[in-house]
């Protein structure tokens, strides 16, 4: 067990956990930030995507010991009131079906637009390729990213 003071969604939060605990379970179990989802536990599906210093990472394989000093943002901290352009675009296009993967999709999309405000269709597909949507909302995701790109650039 070790003590960590984490910088999550702009707040400093303290947890006492085993250093090997993946960030995903620190968020979900210890901090009750359940917006970040568990899908595969091996960085294959993207449901657990969060931002570490504005980069999209898979929190299910990231030990908490490796992120102690970083700025961590999860879906609950992406915006104050769900008004991030990507979240707005997701609602405008009515993207979700079951909705379970969408927090991860949104976090990947938001990180993409931060780095590349005007991605091509191919760049969107390629950046989003690590996020599985079992319901098959890929076309709406692409459309929402394009709409959000128009608003962030």
């Amino acid at each position: 067990m070790a003590n960590y003071i984490l910088n999550i969604n702009g707040k400093r939060l303290e947890v006492e956990v085993d250093p090997s605990t993946p960030l995903l379970w620190v968020l979900r179990d210890h901090l009750k930030l359940v917006g970040t989802k568990f899908g595969c536990g091996m960085a294959q599906c993207g449901a657990c995507t969060v931002h570490i210093d504005d980069t999209a990472v898979r929190s299910c394989v990231l030990p908490v010991s490796s992120v102690a000093e970083s700025k961590i943002t999860n879906i609950e901290g992406l915006s104050a009131d769900g008004d991030h352009p990507v979240q707005q675009a997701w609602m405008e296009v009515d993207v979700p079906q079951c909705g379970y993967c969408q927090a991860g999709q949104i976090m990947t999309a938001a990180a993409l637009l931060k780095q590349n405000p005007n991605p091509t269709e191919e760049e969107i597909e390629s950046a989003m390729n690590g996020n599985i949507c079992r319901c098959g909302t890929y076309l709406r995701i692409k459309k929402a990213v394009q709409i959000a790109a128009g608003k962030t650039s």
């Binding site: 359940v34 917006g35 992406l78 997701w90 609602m91 009515d94 979700p96 927090a103």
Partner: peptide, 19 residues
């Protein structure tokens, strides 16, 4: 066409699912 009544909760990561 009406948008899903749960969209806002889904895109902001509110607890909705069994897990």
């Amino acid at each position: 066409s009406k948008k899903s009544v749960e969209n806002k909760k889904i895109v902001t990561g509110k607890p909705l699912f069994g897990l």
